[in-house]
């Protein structure tokens, strides 16, 4: 129970601290609004209008790789955590991990310049 108490006190403190800083900023900081201050920063230029720009397609392969590896990472995680409870499954675990790592190394060596492939 004591452990929960410490966590709750810590959580309350951690929430109060930024609010306290914000309050101090409200008290200490000046408040002199000007149009010049509140326009978006664009290196001293008059801000230009937004243009609808396409998704950076160059990086799309990385998104696909992320999804593929996220699944693989969970497979690798679950497989290797099995070792803790079932030491007799060791050979199968090693086989799966060997296949996954060998294929990832093979891919890494063969898929160069991924950005320009699409």
């Amino acid at each position: 129970m004591a452990s929960h108490d410490a966590l709750i006190i810590y959580l309350v403190l951690v929430v109060i601290l930024p609010i306290l800083f914000w309050g101090m900023n409200k008290l200490l900081g000046p408040r002199r609004p000007q149009r010049k201050k509140s326009i978006a920063f664009e290196c001293g230029q008059e801000p230009m209008r937004w243009r609808p720009s396409p998704f950076p397609f160059e990086y799309f392969p990385y998104a696909i790789i992320y999804v593929a590896y996220a699944v693989l990472a969970i497979v690798a995680f679950l497989t290797s955590v099995t070792l803790i409870d079932r030491p007799d499954a060791a050979l199968r675990v090693i086989l799966i991990l060997a296949i996954i790592s060998a294929s990832s190394i093979y891919l890494a060596l063969n898929l160069r310049d991924l950005g320009q492939r699409l």
Partner: peptide, 12 residues
């Protein structure tokens, strides 16, 4: 110093 500056919220 940071706390005694104005917190500017941009229009956008």
């Amino acid at each position: 110093k940071f706390l005694s500056k104005e917190y500017i919220i941009p229009e956008t």
